[in-house]
């Protein structure tokens, strides 16, 4: 990846600012994302991570700053614009509808249709078989395509959301805390999925508070703190302790660590 200086980033966010009334959620954040990398975005609660990726996915409009996709400046007015540019997002509070079946969720907004007597009908057979195929590729054994998303575990839901994004041609996949509510096994499944997706050449933006999760799959790390960033570190250039301290803003954790015996 030393050649990165010459490769155009698949997406570049330059000096993004976002104000919510008096609150400065982002005070000028820049980031470059390259194809096939897993870029971890770390930071404490309220650091501005979700706000930042919402700007990237067209959910919020930045107050200031520029967005470039493959070197070309873009203005996203809504999530559809971002999707069209190949940017898919799995939001923190999931994009799955628990009462609906996996296959209906999988194709939501992109339903395949077939014409019968001139009328467009939902092509359920196609949707079902494609869903089963995509799911088994990701290592999830569904009872059937009719199985409701509500019956899946948290990790499986994340995997469905991720594989859906990839299936519809995402080149940048943004995951907002996909592991925050998961246990060890589920987390490992999601991380493995991230790894798979990255190996297919998709750029993954992985948001987490958990330094261990970040280190398990991340290629580069950007830490946000109170709406600002201290730049991006490569894997190997930074120790877990450094990351941890950067996230906490440098000092507070040092005192905490003593009393918790280094378990944070």
């Amino acid at each position: 990846m030393n050649s990165q200086a010459t490769v155009t980033p698949i997406i570049e966010m330059r000096n993004i600012r976002k104000h919510y009334g008096p609150v400065i959620a982002l005070a000028g954040v820049s980031i470059k994302i390259y194809p096939g990398e897993c870029h971890c975005l770390l930071g404490d609660n309220g650091a501005g991570k979700s706000t930042f990726i919402k700007a990237m996915s067209g959910v919020v409009k930045p107050t200031q700053g520029d967005i470039f996709v493959n070197g070309e400046q873009k203005f996203f007015n809504n999530p559809r614009d971002a999707m069209q540019a190949g940017i898919a997002t799995v939001h923190q509070h999931l994009a799955m509808i628990p009462l609906m079946s996996v296959s209906r969720n999988f194709f939501l907004g992109n339903e395949p249709t077939k014409k019968i007597a001139g009328i467009q009908f939902y092509d359920r057979k196609h949707a079902d078989s494609k869903t089963m195929e995509a799911m088994s590729k990701m290592g999830i054994n569904l009872r059937g395509p009719d199985q409701a998303v509500g019956t899946l575990s948290g990790g499986e839901r994340q995997t469905v959301a991720i594989s859906r994004a990839v299936h519809f041609g995402a080149r940048v996949l943004i995951l907002d805390e996909p592991t925050s509510a998961l246990g060890v096994r589920q987390t490992s499944n999601v991380l493995a999925t991230i790894d798979k997706v990255r190996n297919e050449g998709v750029a993954v933006v992985f948001i987490t508070h958990n330094v261990r999760h970040a280190l398990a799959v991340g290629d580069r790390f950007t830490v946000l703190n109170r709406g600002q960033t201290h730049g991006t570190a490569m894997r190997g250039d930074i120790t877990p302790e450094d990351l941890q301290n950067l996230m906490a803003g440098g000092q507070e954790l040092a005192t905490l660590e003593g009393s918790l015996g280094g378990t944070v």
Binding site: P79, I97, Y122
Partner: peptide, 21 residues
């Protein structure tokens, strides 16, 4: 129909449905 899928989704979780287009 695909519209039927949208009816379910709109009632199931309007926000998630919007995010899916």
């Amino acid at each position: 129909t695909r519209f039927g899928n949208w009816i379910f989704a709109s009632g199931g979780d309007a926000e998630a449905a919007r995010n899916s287009g």
